[in-house]
């Protein structure tokens, strides 16, 4: 198979370039894009640089742009791609080296929504009770793996990375608003009422299209908007 991979090492390269590799994916027993990238690194070119960890789609390390679409290298089957396979770093984030991007802005936006349970009531001796129906409201929200596939595919984030929280951060904002155990809903919604943090979402839905976990940040954003309206009334 033929691969065309974005390369850039700030120590040696004046500007980024695409490097071509031919890999016998069958002989190297490659099923996923990650298998192929590691085979290239192990057998052809040890300078190729990428992040990876769990190789099963749950740690969120290997988000990248594969044939024009953001996804996880470890869960993208080579058989679903038509060649030549073009691999680039996630768009909209500064490149550190090759396929490794600087995610600090992404993490900052995540931290901005105070992504932790807040509850001002006294702690019970045992667990707080939560009905299965209340708990079900967290499904589709808590599973986020912070891979940044969604946020880095969002034009609103490309334009305002400092001000727009982005789909991943907003999904987590709603995850805590939706949690029956969290008592900070009013403050959480108030923190998002400025023109940028949430309202820069234009409903383009690239986030939904690319999420490797099948989550729906646009829906969460709309639910936040509805709750804001209810609070305002």
């Amino acid at each position: 198979m033929h691969f065309s991979i974005y390369r850039y090492n700030p120590e040696t390269d004046k500007k980024p370039y695409m490097q071509e590799y031919d890999l016998d994916t069958e002989a190297n027993n490659c099923h996923m894009v990650l298998d192929a990238l590691l085979a290239i690194k192990n057998t052809l070119d040890d300078t190729l640089t990428l992040r990876r960890s769990c190789r099963e789609g749950v740690c969120g390390s290997d988000g990248m742009n594969i044939n024009g679409k953001n996804g996880l290298a470890c869960t993208t089957h080579l058989s679903t791609l038509s060649g030549p396979i073009v691999i680039r770093p996630l768009p909209g984030l500064p490149v550190v080296r090759d396929l490794v991007v600087d995610m600090s802005q992404f993490y900052k936006q995540y931290e901005k929504v105070k992504p932790y349970l807040q509850n001002s009531d006294p702690l019970p001796a045992k667990e707080r009770l939560q009905s299965p129906e209340e708990r079900a409201k967290l499904d589709g929200l808590y599973e986020c793996i912070l891979c940044a596939c969604c946020t880095s595919s969002c034009p609103s984030f490309w334009w305002n990375p400092e001000k727009f929280v982005g789909p991943a951060g907003l999904l987590q904002a709603y995850r805590f608003v939706a949690d029956s155990r969290d008592t900070a809903t009013t403050e959480r919604l108030a923190d998002l009422t400025d023109p940028f943090s949430l309202f820069r979402c234009r409903g383009i839905m690239n986030c939904v299209d690319v999420c490797p976990k099948g989550l729906n940040p646009t829906k969460a954003i709309n639910q936040l908007k509805e709750l804001m309206l209810e609070e305002a009334v």
Partner: peptide, 14 residues
């Protein structure tokens, strides 16, 4: 649980 871990629940909320 108090930290917010989203445990699965029984019908009685435990």
């Amino acid at each position: 649980e108090h930290m917010g871990l989203p445990f699965s629940r029984l019908d009685d909320g435990k």
